[in-house]
Design a protein around this nucleic acid. Sequence first.
DNA 1: GACACCTTACTGACCAGTAAGTAGAGTCGC
DNA 2: GCGACTCTACTTACTGGTCAGTAAGGTGTC
Lengths: 192, 192
Amino acid sequence: MKPETDARITDTRKKILDLAEALMLSRGFNAFSYQHISAELGVRNAAIHYHFPKKSDLGVALIERYCRRFERFTQAQADLSPDEQLEQYFELADRYFGQQQICPSGILSAELQTLPDDMRLQTQAFVALMRGWAADIVRRGRDAGVMHYPGSAEGMGDVVFAAMQGALQLARFDRQALQSVKLQIRQLLGCQ
Amino acid sequence: MKPETDARITDTRKKILDLAEALMLSRGFNAFSYQHISAELGVRNAAIHYHFPKKSDLGVALIERYCRRFERFTQAQADLSPDEQLEQYFELADRYFGQQQICPSGILSAELQTLPDDMRLQTQAFVALMRGWAADIVRRGRDAGVMHYPGSAEGMGDVVFAAMQGALQLARFDRQALQSVKLQIRQLLGCQ
DNA sequence: GACACCTTACTGACCAGTAAGTAGAGTCGC
DNA sequence: GCGACTCTACTTACTGGTCAGTAAGGTGTC
């Protein structure tokens, strides 16, 4: 049966991506090796190279998957109110925090100077997506009259995005920090 | 003459620290090697090991220097008004940005999981210092009536600190991002 | 027999770290 | 004022480990 074969084909590939994702978000892209993945998966090193010849291929695939996942995420919650969308974003951050991880844009931008060119470009596109979305939420929040803040929606979106990225990093030292930042952002936006 | 000898002793050591600092803030701690430093300095690899036997010794020395420098920085501007202190902090960020660097707490927290234990402890102390200072500025800013924001000073300090850390990372993709975040923070605090 | 999905076996580069030796400058007894 | 000693600040030469990446071979399935 074709589906079963296809399922097996994508199975290892998906497991590699999942493991690589977890490793990248906790250790960073440069700080995990094909050994980390192959050992956990019970295969040999070269098996990873079969699916992703270069490490940058794996990296690009990871970020592409983030982009697809993120677009599905935004489409799925397109009908929610802006303040509900903000809470969904906060929950996303909580999930990263619960696994001792930071957000993908955080680790990728920190390591940016050492990333291969193709990964850098892909990262840029991903960050632009996230940034635009944050600005969108606060813009529609203000238009709907549920959020109140001075300045531009782009500026406020940047602050929310940057603060959440920084908060996840800060939370590695103090578990209270993420809650602290989330609460303060809610108050700054005047919602809840 | 003693002073001249002492000057030469500390000269190489200081040059190593300076180069290591620049490398860490642009590439990350794990992504630079003793080769990077020794090549630039025109000495052999082992010369670096003479001054800093383990790489973690170099890392700890770097963060300790940050702590000392930071305390001198806060003492030097103790007499400034809170909004002037905030602008000094912004200028610090501008200086990092101008050299294609991110802030030390940003890179160290991103790489935290892969850092040796002694560096982790030192980083924790450094971050606590910076965080406390940010909270101090906005607390005294509110007390003095020049800053206005909802919630606690700790919460607002965390947002400012996290947002600036995130903004420096965001600025690697878009040079406007840092200005955007700085401006928005000023407006959120109601100063200028 | 063609293909997907691995394996074994290897290469060369880079890495942190070490051991042993050395050049020069300062210190001491005499 | 001269040899012996000592210390700092390196050097050369090396080790063992890890890394990404490759080449060639095997195995099961359509």
